[in-house]
């Protein structure tokens, strides 16, 4: 067996004349805590969409545990163990927190195609969902309509839906985006306590988050891998500082 859970070979995607992702070779180790950083427009979200199957690549391959999944549809990849969260919350807004998680769990255990018995009889689904909410400290909010929660806790539900799929690979697209700084610790705590066997790829702008969480960092610039290494190496890399931190300083100056 391989200890690489997710891998890309020469993965590329262009939209007309614009090349968003340009021949990326990338390896996500099993149980990794990996961060993907890069300036705006570096192709990070396109890359995630290629990994999850929302977009089809114009070239290259995606491998999951050594198996070519390039041609697989999004739903199939989820079944194979790739889950994601979104940069902007995508929740079932009219439903309760518990229902939000139940939908994901029911889908995973294959209950969702059953038409002729009540969902309430799937106690296993409800129990597992409640358990998940408890471990994420969302138990007290289980019955609230998800849109009534403060944004930070909504981000947590976003995470819970993905974890409910019991993924092997979890892609977190800016999990702390939009969360007031007073609430970011809720998200970070939850991410730190994710099961070790899940390989986590986090896309993040916030360097504090990246350095606190990641054991390995990949920098993307202009659709290609610019540098890769431990957080310390990346921090010390003068080119990265120039490209990435320079840009940050620039945007900070423009406010």
């Amino acid at each position: 067996m391989t200890d690489i859970s997710l891998e890309t070979e020469g993965l590329g995607r262009h939209f007309g004349a614009l090349t968003a992702v340009n021949g990326v070779d990338f390896k996500l180790a099993a149980g990794a805590r990996h961060a993907l950083i890069g300036p705006n427009g570096a192709g990070k979200t396109t890359f995630v969409n290629l990994l999850t199957g929302v977009l089809t690549p114009t070239r290259g391959r995606v491998l999951l545990a050594g198996r070519d999944i390039t041609a697989r549809a999004q739903a199939e990849r989820v079944k194979l163990g790739i889950a994601r969260t979104f940069q902007i919350n995508r929740l079932f807004r009219g439903l309760s927190v518990l229902e939000n998680v139940c939908i994901s769990v029911a889908e995973r255990v294959g209950a969702a195609t059953s038409m002729f018995y009540p969902a309430g009889r799937r106690v296993d689904v409800i129990d597992e969902s409640m358990d998940l909410l408890d471990t994420l400290k969302l138990g007290d909010a289980a019955r609230h309509c998800v849109s009534e929660l403060p944004y930070g806790r909504q981000r947590l539900v976003e995470l819970a839906i993905a974890i409910g799929l019991r993924p092997r690979v979890l892609l977190l697209d800016e999990p702390a985006a939009g969360v007031p700084s007073a609430e970011t610790h809720i998200i970070l705590d939850a991410i730190e306590r994710l099961p070790e066997q899940i390989a986590v790829l986090i896309i993040e702008h916030d360097m504090d988050v990246v350095f606190r969480f990641a054991k390995r960092v990949t920098v993307m610039v202009g659709g290609a891998v610019f540098a890769e290494g431990t957080p310390r190496e990346i921090e010390a890399n003068p080119h990265v500082r120039e490209v990435y931190l320079g840009q940050a300083a620039l945007s900070a100056a423009h406010g």
Binding site: V78, F92, R93, I103, E107, R108, G164
Partner: peptide, 11 residues
Amino acid sequence: ENLLRMHAVGA
């Protein structure tokens, strides 16, 4: 309630 999310949970 959310089409995109439903895709993302593998439905």
